[in-house]
Design a binder for these strands. Structure first.
Lengths: 168, 168
DNA sequence: TTGGCTGCAAAGGCTTTGCACGCTC
DNA sequence: GAGCGTGCAAAGCCTTTGCAGCCAA
């Protein structure tokens, strides 16, 4: 009992979820898609498409940038990956560990990203939607500032410019 | 006393503020810059660089896209204009009327934008920063949903895709 | 007169797409 | 075998930049 056929390799929980998602859309579970998924869940934190592509190349694969973008799109739609900007004009991504939602605190000097979750903010957003008759579907809250290590270290002019350039 | 030279045309409060800003940086107050500023403050609400450029062209001017971008950058730095994304991958702008700050509620179906201000959210952000030792400099809160008119009207699949494509 | 400013066109950075071949189901 | 998936290269979109002439101060 509990015997697992040797031919069926053990897959991570993420891979299983991705497979279910793909099947539900009659899409295929390819080696490339699994490689992208594995690379994302192997390393923590935030990354962009270019970095992910580089990691996949380094790992020996021959996955194209196009496939990286196409797979990221599917992963976002499946809910396994979240897409953020963190103030940049290009997209940033992060593995959606579990179902917990969080927002981001970003240091304008060293780019460090801190995640936080405040139920009271979630509640306020519901109140705001209700006040305007909106049905809440999604939100994005990003706080920019200076982290403990950078407070007092950063050049004021540089920071001011960086704020002006934020894409939020 | 109090005499104003006739040769000096009356200027809007915004133009005066822009002039002060430019002088402080030893930059020049050109006709193009004034035209961009006037066009922005003539019409309300949110706009992107392309729309602004089109309006300026229609108005008879011959202002280049490059000048539009360069001037928007100066206006953002001066604080007269705010830059937002509203979920789009390109920049959106809005005239900063007075000093009041506000956040945005955006309809995923009809793209309507509602501005709101909640002091309690501002306070929470200060608390979050304090909790992590950050110095708060800037923030961005965007809530996406369906406006009263679009609730129940929108196709669920379309909305889901739109959420996945948001650049936030 | 002297920088800064402008339009133009080209270049840049990120992302998407057309196409012919390849692989999963 | 059918149809989705892939790599490649080209195209797209928005934005920035180099340059020669122009203009505000």
């Amino acid at each position: 009992m509990g015997h697992v056929p040797e031919s069926r390799k053990a897959r991570s929980a993420e891979a299983a979820r991705f497979e279910v998602f793909l099947r539900s859309r009659k899409l295929k579970l390819t080696g490339e898609r699994l490689a992208v998924l594995a690379s994302i869940f192997q390393r923590e934190s935030h990354f962009d498409a270019e970095t992910l592509h580089a990691h996949l190349r380094t790992a020996g694969g021959n996955i194209s940038r196009a496939t990286v973008y196409r797979t990221l799109d599917l992963l976002v739609q499946s809910g396994l990956v979240r897409k953020n900007s963190l103030g940049a004009s290009h997209a940033n991504y992060e593995a959606a560990q579990g179902d917990e939602h969080h927002d981001h605190l970003i240091c304008l000097n060293c780019s460090q990203v801190v995640e936080f979750y405040r139920p009271d903010i979630e509640n306020l957003q519901e109140q705001i939607c209700a006040a305007h008759g909106f049905k809440l579907i999604h939100h994005s809250l990003q706080i920019f500032g200076l982290c403990p290590g950078c407070t007092g270290q950063a050049d004021e002019g540089t920071i001011r410019n960086r704020v002006a350039q934020l894409h939020t």
